[in-house]
Computed example of a mutant assay.
Amino acid sequence: MTHRILITGANGFVGTALSQLLEREYVDCKVFALGHGEGQRNAIDLLDREAIDSAVGEIKPTALIHLAAVAAPSDARNAPRHAWNVNVTGTMNLAESVLRHAPNARFVYVGSSEAYGASFLDMSGPVTESVPLRPMNVYAATKAAADLMIGQMAYDGLRAVRFRPFNHTGPGQSDTYVVSAFARQVAEIVSGKRNPIIHVGNLQAERDFLDVRDVVRAYARSATMDLADGPHHVYNIASGQPRKIRDILDMLVAQSGIDIEVRADPEKLRPNDIPVASGDATKARERLNWAPLVPFEQTIADVFGYWQRLCNAR
C-alpha cells in the first residue's frame, strides 16, 4: 500500500523534520505539504473551508498529520482570538473535510502537554493521558479544546489519533523557545557578536524535553500503522524525565568553554508558570512501539551547532 500523507504546517520546524523522516525512511509514502504564509509552497489558510475542501478532495490522503497552529504561547497570549480561530476552528475545518472527502484517512492531531496545565500542580511524577485537561494559558486552552473536539469526532467516525507531546527541540527551532534561545545567545557570545552575558527567565522550572527527531517518529508511525479505530488513541510523547532549565543552560555554557554571566530578565518570566511538568509515555511505548532514542546531550550539541553555523555564516 502506498501511503498518501498530507501534512499541515509542513514548512515549520516540526513539519520539516517530519517530511524529511518520511522521505528518508518511508519508501511507500507520498508526502503532500500544506504550508502557510506568503511565498510558502502550497500555502493554505486553515480558515478557508473551500480551499481546505478542495485540497483534501484532490489529494484524498490516507493520513493527515495536523501540525499547523499558533504554536508559541506568547503569540497566542498577544492575539487570543486569532489563536482560537486557527487552533480550534481551523482544526474543525480540516477534520470535517477529512470526514467528507477522505473518510478512511487517519487524522493525526498534534496537541500539547500544556493542555494538562493545573493538573501538573496536583501530581507528583509523570502524568498519564487520563489526567484532566486544565489549561492555564490561551495557547494551552486552544489546544485542549481542539483535543476534546477531535476526541468527540472520533465517536462520529473520524479515525483520529491525538498526541500530547511534551517540550521538544532540535536544530532549526526558532529562538522563541527556551533551548534555542539559550543556544543562540551562547553561540553569539562564542562568535564575538554578543557580550558574555545571557538573559534568562525562570531557571528553576523543570520540563520534560525530547528531540524533535524522536517526536516525529511517533507521528509517522501512527499515520502508517494499522491501528484499530475508536476514540481511545490519545498518547503522551514524553521522556518521563524532567530537566531543570538551569541544567540545560549549564550544558550549553559548558560547550562554549567561556565564562558567561547569567542575568535574570523579568520580561522573560511567563505568567502561570508550572514548577514541574513531565509525562508518562507508557501507552505510546506499548501501542505504537515508540520510545525516545536520541540522547539529550546529542540534542543540545546539535542545537548549539546549528546556531554556531548560523552565526559564522553572517
Results as ranks from 00 to 15, higher is better:
M1V: 12
T2Y: 10
H3V: 14
I5Y: 00
L6Q: 11
L6I: 01
G9Y: 10
F13W: 04
F13P: 00
S19H: 09
L21N: 02
L22A: 00
D28F: 07
D28L: 03
F32K: 08
A33F: 00
A33L: 11
G35H: 09
G37T: 00
E38K: 10
E38H: 07
E38Y: 01
N42D: 01
I44C: 08
I44L: 13
D45S: 15
L46D: 03
D48Q: 06
S54L: 15
I59P: 00
K60H: 14
A63E: 03
A63T: 08
A63N: 04
A71T: 01
A76D: 12
A76G: 13
R77L: 07
P80N: 11
P80F: 03
N85T: 06
N87H: 05
N87D: 13
V88Q: 14
V88E: 08
N93P: 01
A95M: 01
A95I: 01
L99N: 03
P103Y: 12
V110W: 03
S112R: 04
Y116L: 10
S119G: 12
F120V: 03
V127M: 13
T128Y: 02
S130V: 06
P132Q: 11
M136P: 05
A141D: 12
T142V: 10
K143P: 11
A145N: 07
A145W: 06
A146Q: 15
D147T: 13
M149N: 08
M149T: 14
I150E: 04
M153W: 15
A154L: 02
G157P: 02
G157L: 03
L158F: 05
R159Q: 14
A160P: 05
R164G: 05
P165H: 00
N167Y: 09
N167W: 08
G170L: 11
Q173M: 13
Q173R: 13
S174R: 14
V179I: 15
A181L: 02
A183L: 09
V186K: 01
E188I: 09
I189P: 02
R194N: 01
N195P: 07
P196G: 02
V200P: 00
G201E: 06
N202E: 12
E206I: 01
F209G: 04
D214C: 07
D214W: 07
V215S: 05
A218G: 03
R221M: 13
T224H: 04
D229K: 14
G230K: 02
P231H: 11
N236S: 09
Q241H: 11
R246D: 14
D247F: 12
I248G: 14
L249M: 13
M251N: 07
L252Q: 09
V253E: 03
V253Q: 10
V262W: 01
D265L: 00
K268W: 05
R270V: 06
D273P: 08
V276R: 13
V276Q: 10
A281P: 08
T282D: 07
L288C: 14
A291C: 12
F296G: 09
D302E: 13
V303M: 08
G305R: 08
W307D: 00
Q308Y: 00
Q308A: 02
L310P: 06
N312V: 06
R314M: 06
